[in-house]
Design a protein around this nucleic acid. Structure first.
Lengths: 106, 106
DNA sequence: GTGTGATACATCGTAGCACGAAGTATATCA
DNA sequence: TGATATACTTCGTGCTACGATGTATCACAC
């Protein structure tokens, strides 16, 4: 998928992938992969951005000798997902504009 | 609408707005306005990019003392719109991923 | 015990892109 | 005479996704 097209979806997708259950970087990438592929460097940038925006919180947990950073969504993060629904209405309208055929034009 | 979300839609939207009928900058902005607002500087950047990518051709026409640059879509431009339909399938899947509720998770 | 691949996170530089600001120029209407 | 609409252009800025590279542990094979 085109990079530009991904941009607006990425943040919300990451939030959606931790919405139901706290998760960590490596797992988020795997969960999103069927829908939207992203590199590690991209994800960690996004996670930092979302943390700075108070949309998620982090806690480090030792797991089998390795460190894992678990991300937890905040109320603001949940709001961001809710607000996406309004964006989605606009996207649907844009989609119609793009795919419309010329029948009755001015 | 969020800038990031617009990015992937803009190019295709501009192509769609000249698909049925040649058009010029100022008119394109007005036609798109109900769906997607964009500034003049943005549009003219996009038009140049699409021209460089052979997705449209330009011809200047004098209209009431002012110059107008009419843009005409090429076959490659039409292809770009057709290909968007595949992207759209992916977007729909992503939308489902984002809005899904936790009922049966792994 | 040594190599390979998976897991896990981090940093840096780059390039694409949308935008605001500012500019040029003409026509219309108050 | 000045405001508003039309019409196109250029410049600088800031955001962001990505590849490249690095660090470190664990499991498994050979």
């Amino acid at each position: 998928m085109d990079i530009q097209l991904k941009r607006g979806l990425l943040d919300v997708c990451v939030l959606a992938s931790i919405k139901n259950e706290d998760s960590y970087g490596y797992k988020i990438i795997k969960d999103m992969k069927p829908y939207l592929e992203l590199s590690e460097s991209t994800l960690y940038t996004i996670l930092k951005r979302l943390e700075a925006a108070n949309m998620l919180t982090v806690r480090s947990i030792e797991h089998e000798g390795r460190l894992r950073k678990y991300y937890h969504i905040t109320d603001e993060g949940l709001n961001r997902i809710r607000e996406f629904k309004y964006d989605w209405e606009e996207i649907l309208a844009i989609h119609q504009f793009i795919t419309r055929e010329d029948s009755e034009n001015e």
